[in-house]
Nucleic acid binder design. Sequence first.
DNA 1: ATTAAAGTTGGACAAGCGTACCGCTTTTAT
DNA 2: ATAAAAGCGGTACGCTTGTCCAACTTTAAT
Lengths: 202, 202
Amino acid sequence: MSGRVPRGDGGKPGRKPQERALRRKEALLDAAVALLGEGGFTAVTHRAVAERAGVPLAATTYYFSSRDELVAQAFAVLVERDLRLMRDSLTRACGDSLDELARTLVRTYASDRGRQLGLWELYLQAGREPALQHIARAWTDGWDDIVRTLLDRSGHPCGRSEVRFVATLVSGFWLEHIVEARPGALEQAADMVTRALRAIST
Amino acid sequence: MSGRVPRGDGGKPGRKPQERALRRKEALLDAAVALLGEGGFTAVTHRAVAERAGVPLAATTYYFSSRDELVAQAFAVLVERDLRLMRDSLTRACGDSLDELARTLVRTYASDRGRQLGLWELYLQAGREPALQHIARAWTDGWDDIVRTLLDRSGHPCGRSEVRFVATLVSGFWLEHIVEARPGALEQAADMVTRALRAIST
DNA sequence: ATTAAAGTTGGACAAGCGTACCGCTTTTAT
DNA sequence: ATAAAAGCGGTACGCTTGTCCAACTTTAAT
């Protein structure tokens, strides 16, 4: 038999993967992530991903055993990148005042609508596919962690419940803004978050 | 030519639609709504809807000019039913205490996971398809209205911002619970909502 | 040098999809 | 009665999809 199954990750040593192959797999994931942001879940097809990554169609089935696995890995990458971007953006500018803090929280969420839509789409998909569950939870946990760090550093340390409170509220406003794009929603959200912060800091 | 286009809604009088046809269209919408809850957006195909409704395939294209329109109308029906169910359930049991109010708010959200998943799925889809925008907004507005009514009747009247605050918070917790299904999430959510209500009632 | 694994690829397959056609029956206004 | 509109539905077209296969080349351990 010829070379099937690049690495099920749990088998015998065999040969070590070649560098070019790793780059190809990465390119495929990048393409999948980009497509997911542009056209959503249904846009991530084998052919579209392959063409975008500049590789032949058959390469997609060589590196990913199924479409579900490709989508799952793309979801994981997307979550990882999103959390890092959010962390970087939030830890940089960090004012002391509650109002400024709220404004920073809300503003950061407002970048790259397509990517965020894709992210939420996959998050929702996790409600039906158990294989995506742990990635969805990792997103929530990571976001909670960022909010906690931010609150701590701003001189408003608080418990788990309060963190969940702020994180969920911001996520909720964010989702609404991404989907409905109502004018002035961002400012209102910032006001509400300010109020929430004031509520938990007493 | 024979009978094409049942009613573009905006044309000449022509003939009035027959009763059996209306029931059929309703059956198709019911089937679409059910399928959307069971299998999500992608499960709503012409063939699946037709089979479910007990009508031949061609009937779906007769009553709906395209799949997008079928999905859009199913979305509208789903929103309408959801809001009514929520309104009925909430206005019935209506305690006075903040804690009881919060618990009622959260508990009501916890019914029929599949239907809720489908609803959120379509809501998110509205972020990409402008045709769905007004339905998504109707859902948000309707939910806001229910929350306002509930707060008013419980002796905690408040302004628009405060209503948005509570509505978004509850929706956020709800969405998390539907997707991630973490144990104890409902109780935590109720506590947080209680805290939020206390924050806005002072 | 040999050999087996890994990587690579064009092409094909069955299945499912949205949609359109067109002959047919039923209703209804005249 | 008659004709037009509306309802009806079997069938098929063209397309996209996920997945697979068999042959080929490259890599690396022996």
